[in-house]
Amino acid sequence: MIRSILLATALVCSVPAVAAPARYDGTWSVEIVTEAGSCDRAYRYPVRIENGQVRFVGTAFTVNGQVARNGAIRGSISSGLSTATVVGRLGANGFGRGTWVASGSLECRGRWNAEKRG
């Protein structure tokens, strides 16, 4: 469950801006890298964006948010007693990157990279 929380975190956001253009819609492959703390070192997970709304491809998470018109990502994902916050940006070129921090029952942080796959 710890691994899944952090994987999905990469593209979870709660930016109250206008929904992103269709260029961000699709499935994104997200690589999560832990730089500090006891979370798994690295892993990859799919995230789906539809009409600017971000959702985890799977179950067991609470995901809220959207992608801002300029691709900015800011938000959170939670599961159980853990919450992870995310900041970063998606590019119109199909790539994105940023950072994440987990708190609650987890204490770790790191960076993420994303690539649009479809």
Rank of each mutant, 00 (worst) to 15 (best):
N113P: 00
G98D: 04
A22G: 10
P16R: 04
V30H: 01
G71S: 03
A8M: 08
A20Q: 04
G58L: 11
R69V: 14
N70W: 12
A84C: 09
R111D: 13
G96V: 03
S82M: 10
W112T: 01
E107R: 13
L90E: 02
E50G: 05
A68S: 05
D40Q: 13
Q53Y: 11
V87L: 07
R23C: 09
V63T: 07
A10I: 04
M1C: 12
A22W: 15
W100L: 03
F56C: 00
V57Q: 09
V47L: 06
F95I: 07
V30D: 06
E50M: 12
A72G: 00
F95G: 00
R41H: 15
A92N: 08
E115N: 06
W112P: 01
L11C: 01
E31M: 10
A42I: 14
V54E: 03
R44P: 05
R111Y: 14
G37D: 12
R74A: 07
A22C: 08
C108A: 15
C108Q: 05
F56A: 07
A68T: 03
R74K: 03
V67S: 00
T59G: 09
R41T: 15
A8W: 09
V33G: 01
D40P: 11
V86S: 03
N51I: 03
G98I: 05
S76K: 03
T99K: 05
R3Q: 15
R48L: 13
S4E: 14
D25I: 07
Y24S: 04
S76F: 14
L106H: 09
V18E: 12
R41D: 15
C39T: 02
P16A: 08
A17W: 10
Q66S: 08
A72N: 00
R23M: 14
E35Q: 11
R111A: 12
R55N: 06
R74G: 02
V33C: 04
G37M: 13
L7R: 02
V12G: 00
S14M: 07
V54L: 05
R89I: 05
S29M: 11
Y45F: 08
N93D: 15
A92F: 14
R97I: 10
N64E: 09
D25V: 12
G65D: 02
G98Y: 04
R55P: 00
T27C: 06
S29D: 10
R97Y: 14
S79E: 11
T83D: 05
A68P: 00
T83Q: 09
S82V: 08
G71W: 09
S38W: 14
E115S: 08
R111S: 13
C108S: 13
T34V: 08
V57R: 05
R109T: 13
S14K: 01
S4K: 08
G52C: 10
A84R: 02
D25F: 10
A60I: 12
F56Q: 02
T34H: 10
N64Q: 07
A102F: 15
S78K: 02
R89K: 09
N70T: 02
K116W: 15
V15E: 07
E115G: 05
A8C: 01
L90S: 01
G80K: 11
G52K: 06
Y45P: 00
E35R: 11
L106Y: 13
R48Y: 12
